[in-house]
Design a protein around this nucleic acid. Structure first.
Lengths: 225, 225
DNA sequence: CAACATAATGGCAGTCAGTGCCATTTGGCC
DNA sequence: GGCCAAATGGCACTGACTGCCATTATGTTG
């Protein structure tokens, strides 16, 4: 999403967003994306450890000091639009009708968080590989996911105030996310590499379905959902 | 557990483990514990950031180079006997009877991982506080928990080979752990500090019950468990 | 008990992530 | 054009962490 905006700005339709984005903002977005792309490229080619912050900054043609104004840490370079996705998921929940089943809404919100951009660009595959090989990356990912989870559970509690208290919402969200995460980790551990986007999507789908089957089962007391 | 062994070694019954532990091993355990205790003490008094590795090493009367032979990172100092607990949980699962309900076994294994030592010593409270305040600590904790989760799910799949494939076990374990973790996080977020051991235990109990209520409900189809 | 093999220690120099400070530049706006 | 606020990037610095190596302590064998 951010990607397409910038592409549009740089291309023939560069004036399209002039009305809504100042030049300064456009430049910032470009710098941010240049950093993320340079990082992904270097991580892929040279490896995570062998790539220094200075390398990334140089490749993006900014100073290292500037890099840290865009990304708080080296690991954050791998999750450039994390916030956008979380916000999208939250909005999905907020926009849901009270008549819907919370589990369905949650499922839709999580599915939406999977950006197609990332999958086809191979960013997801890179991320998964680095998560497996570098504990620090895995730790950062888990931290981001955990924070997102909390935010989502709050949105859920707000969207269904009559069915959930904060704690139950946290439990439900945690169970969902935990199940998916658990399956995903187990899958990652097995197959060495997931290069094919379609394969990755199939895996995620399977993981989600496996994990959530009990929650979505008809026999399950709807009061708990 | 490690604590009591060392205490016994250093005290009047110092000869007790001489037959099973060499002097070298006893010294190593002592150094390890000295480091963990020094770290906990300093983190508590001075704060996490303000405490340097050099401080901890000096307090434990070893060189910083030696510290890193016992703990791979500054954060690891906060989880000194993580491995022991995970192994205990795994053994609990391995020792379970095939006739038991997997969910019950899992619950018992997780409950056992809560060491009384830690709770009364305030280690847990310190850990929770630092997890809330320092993302790096939270990331490390999540990483350790995630790895433990994978190991436990494997043990579960092994213990109930006729009921679970690897993925379902991972999903169930993930859902359990995720639910508890979610509730715990939500609870932690609210109350600023949990100093009282009894209060902490109550919170964990409540979190566990809230999180797992759906799974343990009678109406839930037993085939899924 | 002596001598040897092995493992633990700790110091030193070095790398790199990340931060505070400040002078300079740049875009937004009147 | 000129002022203001924000962005930039260089510099020096801290602190976690590592490889290397000489020294020391421990276990073992005769």
């Amino acid at each position: 999403m951010a990607v397409s905006v910038i592409t549009a700005c740089g291309g023939e339709r560069s004036g399209r967003y002039a009305a809504v984005m100042s030049l300064r903002e456009v430049k910032q977005l470009r710098t941010r994306q240049a950093l993320a792309e340079a990082a992904a490229d270097l991580f892929r080619r040279k490896g995570f450890d062998a790539t220094t912050i200075a390398d990334v900054a140089a490749a993006a043609e900014v100073g290292t000091r500037t890099l840290f104004r865009y990304f708080a840490s080296k690991e954050d370079l791998l999750f450039p639009d994390h916030d956008d996705r979380v916000q999208a998921a939250v909005r999905t929940i907020e926009a849901s009708a009270p008549s819907e089943r919370p589990a369905e809404v949650l499922l839709r919100a999580l599915a939406q968080a999977e950006s197609d951009d990332d999958i086809v660009s191979g960013m997801t595959a890179l991320r998964l590989r680095l998560m497996r090989e570098h504990p620090a990356v895995r730790g950062k990912a888990l931290q981001l996911y955990s924070d997102a989870q909390l935010e989502i559970s709050r949105a859920l509690a707000n969207a269904f105030p009559d069915r959930f208290d904060t704690l139950t919402a946290a439990a439900l969200t945690g169970a969902f996310a935990g199940a998916v995460q658990g399956v995903l980790c187990a899958l990652i551990q097995d197959r060495a590499d997931v290069d094919d986007p379609a394969e990755y999507r199939a895996i995620v789908d399977r993981a989600t379905r496996t994990a959530l089957a009990p929650w979505l089962a008809e026999t399950f007391p709807s009061s708990a959902l």
